[in-house]
């Protein structure tokens, strides 16, 4: 319950205060969001599996976001930013899909 409250509070904060993001950071935001989504789904599934661990969740979240942004940044520097973004989104998307399927099996027993 507390994590969901935290998420709702975060969304409200972001919408209310509308913080300005520095221009150089803007291209990495969508990728960071996808990475964060992956970590959140992973955490939710781990919780349903009964093996959730706060430390693992926090570390995986931070490292996911940072690494995803970093890969895209590196790709931008090398001139393959768009392709690497696609790669990151594909891999994370598959993982999100797999975790969502596992969560579905837990919730609906099907």
């Amino acid at each position: 319950m507390i994590p969901i409250l935290g998420l709702a509070a975060g969304v409200l904060l972001g919408l209310l205060f509308d913080p300005t993001v520095p221009l150089w950071l803007q291209p990495y935001l969508p990728i960071a969001v996808v990475a964060a989504l992956d970590a959140v789904f992973g955490g939710f599934r781990a919780r349903l599996d009964g093996i959730f661990d706060a430390k693992v969740f926090v570390i995986s979240f931070v490292s996911n976001v940072v690494v995803a942004a970093l890969i895209v940044f590196l790709g931008d520097q090398l001139g393959v930013g768009a392709q690497l973004s696609t790669a990151v989104v594909v891999v994370l998307g598959i993982r999100i899909f797999g975790n969502a399927a596992a969560i579905r099996r837990h919730v609906f027993r099907a």
Partner: peptide, 12 residues
Amino acid sequence: TMAIAGVLAAVT
């Protein structure tokens, strides 16, 4: 962490 995720999503 979840709050950070929320802020991130909202800002994006």
